[in-house]
């Protein structure tokens, strides 16, 4: 159906991202294809968990199994937007949530007054006018955590079904940010862990009750005794896709999660993050805070102290 209707049709799950954007005319569509038919179950195995794309964020954040075994993921789902929005918003919609930018997330009239930009109706980027691309920010809370937990999504489209690691779902482009085909629906997310995996998500935002992240750190650490066997650190809201801090992951391998090591790893993790002046609060401060959220997430994963937004 989506393939037949073409670019003037969009999928809608909970509508909590799409409907405000339709009202601001950030998208103009002829048809909406409701995804209410998607299943809404969480299937738990001991080391694996499959979450249907139609599961609401509220359901995922309260699920006892997820809280016990994939606590970082349940935490990230519980930190998206606000309680009534989480009762409608889905985990599939959160993986596909649009990238954000102060110049783009305005009503049509405001955008017209400020001058349209590349992402919608215009031909330059207002944040980086000399750049040929859009730098809108990936703002999903659960996507970085899904990547840290080795997540794989199932996609179903006109040309059949396939699986894709969550890392490969995104492109480094604020405008065309999804790497999947437009007619492909995310139907489920599979997360994996070993018995020694610990995970945590720490999010920074202006109002703890509702706002999008302005920096976030998703970490999943696999311990061998008291040493890190492997680890994944993925940052939210600092690039056009969930940014993996590979150098910090390498640095942590074989080390103990103690205070000085965590501090150094967080410093290394924050280096590749280059927030631009297109989200809430100053981008200099956001850059400085990346180190802090990574430090808190690692400390949380090693069970030492609670995080910023908890």
């Amino acid at each position: 159906m989506a393939a037949e209707l073409g670019p003037r049709a969009m999928f809608v799950a909970g509508g909590t991202d799409l409907f405000p954007k339709l009202k601001r005319r950030q998208f103009e569509v002829d048809s909406l294809i409701g995804l209410d038919f998607l299943p809404r179950a969480i299937r738990n195995g001991s080391d694996e968990c499959v979450i249907d794309a139609g599961v609401t964020l509220a359901h995922a954040s309260h699920d006892p199994h997820l809280n016990e075994r994939f606590s970082g993921y349940a935490e990230a789902a519980g930190h998206v937007s606000s309680p009534p929005l989480r009762n409608a918003g889905t985990i599939g919609g959160n993986l596909c949530v649009d990238t954000r930018c102060n110049y783009y997330d305005m009503t049509y009239e405001w955008r017209k007054a400020a001058g349209f930009c590349l992402k919608k109706d215009g031909d330059i980027c207002l944040v980086a006018p000399s750049s040929p691309r859009c730098w809108a920010v990936s703002s999903s809370d659960t996507a970085p955590m899904a990547i840290a937990l080795g997540g794989v999504v199932t996609l179903v489209g006109a040309s059949g079904e396939r699986e894709l690691p969550v890392t490969a779902l995104y492109r480094d482009d604020g405008d065309r940010y999804m790497a999947k085909q437009p007619d492909e629906v995310v139907t489920g997310l599979r997360l994996r862990r070993s018995p020694n995996t610990r995970s945590a998500y720490v999010k920074l935002r202006r109002r703890g009750s509702i706002d999008f992240p302005i920096a976030g750190a998703a970490v999943a650490v696999e311990l061998d005794g008291d040493r890190v066997e492997s680890c994944r650190i993925v940052l939210s809201a600092v690039a056009s896709y969930p940014l993996e801090a590979k150098a910090a992951e390498e640095f942590l391998k074989g080390r103990r999660l103690q205070e000085d090591v965590i501090r150094e790893a967080a410093e290394i993790a924050s280096r590749p993050a280059k927030p631009l002046d297109n989200a809430d609060l100053s981008h200099f401060w956001r850059k400085r805070m990346v180190r802090v959220v990574v430090e808190q997430a690692l400390a949380r994963a090693s069970d030492q102290q609670p995080g910023l937004d908890g």
Partner: peptide, 24 residues
């Protein structure tokens, strides 16, 4: 606000709060 930010349009759907400005 009509944009999901203020909550004054809250109704219960099957007993759970949701925002009527973002529901069809």
């Amino acid at each position: 606000c009509e944009l999901g930010e203020c909550g004054t349009c809250t109704v219960l759907i099957d007993g759970k709060p949701q925002l009527s400005c973002l529901l069809l």
